[in-house]
Amino acid sequence: MIPFVRKHSSVLSICGVGLLFALLPLVVKEGYLLNILVMIVLFAYLSQCWDIVGGFAGQLSFGHAAFFGIGPYVSILLNMHFKVWPWGGMVAGGLLAVAVAWLFAYPTFRYGLRGSYFALGTLALSALLTISASNVDFLGGAQGLLVPYYEQSFRYMQFGQKTYYYYLILAFMVLLLFFVNGIRKSRFGYYLSAIREDEDAAESLGVKTRKVKMVAMLISAFLTALGGTLYAQYMSFIDPEILSVPFSIEIILPAIIGGGATLFGPLLGAVVLISIKEGIRLYVGHAYTGLSMVVYGLILIGVIIMSRKGLVPLLSRVFFAKFKGEND
């Protein structure tokens, strides 16, 4: 029993966490709180997608909002003009995000842009797409696009109740956790870690760093774009803001604060950040949305100074101090 638990500890803990979140709507029935739950699982999902590039491979990308936004722009336009179901649209959006990611990343990695240079490049990508979307009428301009309403059904990904969206996004998040867990323990995952720790050393040991970074980037872009369509179906509209750098930062923060390159870091970060944001909104009111950003910023600085790897390593250090060697 015990060896079995130990061997499959991460798979079991994903099941446990998934079950816990699946049971939450039994207790939480109020619309406002359900909305918070949806945001938590959505941002946990998005941040986990970012973490494949930003955490595991250590490439600080500020451009993930670009990939995120491409998803719903494609799925909504296909839906509007050709009545394509969002399920097909989201895959198409994912593929376009992959294409854009490749167009961006090929020269970026080819010319060896790393660290600050890579970060600046992704910043420009996000800014460029935001401006383009705001100025093209076909893309809805600055006002954005509305998701056309057909009927409440699974195939059109439109539901009357928030719980349905919650379970849909939760399913994506749990599947992603299994996927990331698989990556973590695979050869590819070790390559990513090697690149994060020392790219030159990894290259000299025979890791094809450019190719590995590219694959991570493409996977991450595809999955992020899927999240974009989920978001759009839930919100039922999008505007160019979702392509912009500030949105990228919102995607990044849960993973950084929870702990990059860990299994549950993005989820923990999303729980902490979204709870704080909504708590402040509840008690202080809309006028003080700035306050939640101040708190976000302070948490970001505090977490990095205290534990540069985020909350999960910090907590496990405190938690498992007694049982040294028991945690993997």
């Binding site: 600080l60 600050s116 950084i256 950003m293 101040v294 910023g297 600085i301 990095i304």
Partner: peptide, 11 residues
């Protein structure tokens, strides 16, 4: 270090 300056900017 970059992330600290980002946090500072947000604050």
């Amino acid at each position: 270090q970059i992330l600290i300056t980002l946090g500072l900017s947000i604050v």
